[in-house]
Amino acid sequence: MKICITAQGNTLDSQMELRFGRSPYFIIYDTETLEFEAIKNPNIEAANGVGIKSAQLMSDKNVQVLLTGKIGPKAADVLNTANIQVINSSAETVQEAITNYQA
């Protein structure tokens, strides 16, 4: 299963980012292969609709669970439609968020 964590950097040690749409990086972690992919957020400079674009990215990457801070109503709408579970995490780092989730 693929889970995505919003992050300030591109490693598992990176600080978690609490914004979704304008998160600097998305870390997509595969719970079966234990591999991860770090994606630099391509939507960060957009003026509007960043939450929607980022949610679209989650859908395109087949993410099933998203660990992040608060998300806006429009992003929530898209994630809901895409059947992606959103979990509000307050972990410090990406690794911690994954560990907490799997616990």
Binding site: A47, N48, G49, I52, K53, Q56, S59, D77, V78, A82
Partner: peptide
């Protein structure tokens, strides 16, 4: 240009 449309899980969503 305003990201007002998304294509998600086999449907188009308009904002």
């Amino acid at each position: 240009a305003y990201n007002a449309i998304a294509i998600i899980a086999k449907q188009a969503m308009v904002f």
